[in-house]
Design a protein around this nucleic acid. Structure first.
Lengths: 208, 208, 208, 208
DNA sequence: CATGAATGAGCTTTCATTCAT
DNA sequence: AATGAATGAAAGCTCATTCAT
């Protein structure tokens, strides 16, 4: 019966958004597992019944929020790309890109952290993050292949792209989630050197 | 008060071990959050009362198991190190080390995956993994500094060590937790190239 | 969070009352400590979830019930007062008042007995009974002071009021809770004589 | 089987006493319900198995302790009596006796408070306190009857004795358990006046 | 005799979800 | 459409007591 409502009018859209906003705030504040559907409904100023007419269940709400989020995160990650000219791509451009990635985590760090935890555990969430990873790896791979002429030749561009992606992602997590006494710029420098060493065969920047 | 039993006799040690074994199996099978203390006790063939006389609560059991585990994991990660001579450390030695790290994940992959998820969420677990990371980063940093003579000079050895650690860790997670169509050896090759590019300034191996 | 429901509609009020009634019956039957929240819910024909949406916990239920009860008990204790004229207050009026107090215990003797036991032990319950005692002592003190003209002068009217209160209370407990072979009227007579001896300086009644 | 040990040798007596002492301290500290048999055994430096070979169960321990205690309490209550000459018993002697009763509560006030709470609830404890009350009431009644010549004649000496006992007991509880801003001496004065008014027909003391 | 490991019934409480109004 | 009262499975944990060693 009770089919899930897909809001078409303004009021419905507002309500759905209010729920999403409330959930985002509460997830950040007390964790996903620590937040109950009642709390979300209350914070959104909506009855629990309404909540369940907009979202089949808590899990579906989370999935929907996450799909939205990764879209935005992806855009934020790659927005710096537009301003770079590939033919002259150098170690400092890598550094800029990396800092752009770090920045993208400011969008909703707690939500990212919380959901990424579930990637190890929840198959639906894993699927979303895996799909996202695939997109980013392909993007990196595309860049490598497009610029093969200016770079050290690469045996397995997909493996290389994956390794670069994983390195950047985990260093971003260290910087943004786990914390470290090392500064973000120092991390970005080392990371840029490492990737430059691989792709550009040029480690002079590290020597400087 | 509720003094936790520290078993001294054979029987007590057996019991504690049986609980730990049962927990390990169940955590892998249905996840940490999906496993109840009653289930663990039942699988261990022990009363729930016994469970709670050996462990203050589920959390404490987990912590104790994890402390044990990371110790073993650390040993497994670095065991390949003994057979290497630093003066001649080359790209292929890095590759061997990396495959050794991948291998260390076979110890208890599901347990590692499940607990690492909680690193984002549970402060006690975060502390353990952070401590472990520190240990490994220091080890890498030590290697870098010891072999400074044979390597490309490095500006900030701690940041470099952290970046290398993060890269290897996340690629291992991709290989062992998230899954990918890329083979482990291809990943290890790309990773070895990347680190060699940074430290050895020598990417010919990638070109071969 | 776990916002406790304050029922506004008929259904909710019914439910809350059903819980209260069931609790009252079970407390009398098997004691407060011997009654579980599940039993109460079951007897009230309500789910355990409902129980906990009306009362934060068993303790809070008890407190709410007790606050209600002492209010009614107080009214019952003093209702006989209205018909007395102070200027002519005599030993027999005291006797009437005392029997009125005894009677007030018929409201819910088991509940009174059970909760009064906790006065020695539970701070919240102690607070309620202490507040009630204060109210009654003030009432007695007021009567003494209002009628100072017709009475033996009293040095410390508050101490005297407390002593009278305590005497009447404990004799009522003997009559209603602990039991004795002495009849209630005999106790009331002795008590009236004692108080009359103190306030009216007139113990002839005892001789009669 | 496991019949309860009645210790005849010194060591056994010591052990039993150590358990009793430990229980007394813990009952005072955390309440009777808040104390577990394990805690008692631990504090007594005895195994839980030993505990149960000296006492059939926690309840029996409590009963045994209480029987002992009321004996001592009774002695303490009446010790002031020896020094009084009945023929000349006056209001101030009553006051002295009352202060003696108050004092007797210093023996183990928390234990008295805790156990007296159970009088309303636990039949075995009720029996002990009822028996004790009977003893004291008889003692008072005896005094009244012995001194009938010097006193206002009394209709029902048993009822009078009960009323006096109840008054004194409850005022002692107010002073020692519930607490009040009225001083103990003020309470004793008012109480002495009240009893004197009943027995001695003499309230001049109150007037001074 | 002493020990303390083991037992397990039973308690309180939470929360995702449903459905009558 | 919106509401929120009602549900109940299920979790974590305690503690008096027993009995094999």
């Amino acid at each position: 019966m009770s089919s899930i409502r897909t809001p078409r009018q303004k009021r419905g859209i507002d309500t759905k958004e209010r729920i999403t906003k409330a959930a985002m705030a509460l997830f950040a504040e007390r964790g996903i597992h620590g937040t109950t559907s009642k709390q979300i409904a209350k914070k959104a100023g909506v009855s629990i019944g309404s909540f369940y007419s907009y979202f089949k269940n808590k899990e579906k709400l989370l999935i929907e929020m996450l799909e939205d989020y990764v879209e935005n995160h992806y855009d934020a990650v790659w927005q710096a790309l537009g301003s770079l000219r590939m033919e002259t791509l150098g170690r400092n451009d890598l550094r800029t890109l990396i800092l752009g990635v770090f920045n993208a985590y400011e969008l909703a760090p707690e939500f990212h952290r919380q959901t990424h935890a579930l990637r190890y555990t929840d198959p639906d969430i894993k699927r979303i993050y895996d799909r996202e990873r695939e997109r980013e790896v392909r993007q990196i791979q595309f860049l490598i292949e497009q610029n093969a002429g200016h770079m050290v030749p690469v045996k397995d561009s997909r493996a290389v792209a994956m390794v670069i992606h994983n390195a950047v992602e985990n260093v971003a997590h260290t910087a943004k989630f786990y914390g470290t006494d090392i500064s973000e710029t120092a991390l970005a420098d080392a990371l840029a050197d490492m990737i430059a060493g691989l792709l550009l065969g040029n480690t002079l920047s590290a020597i400087k």
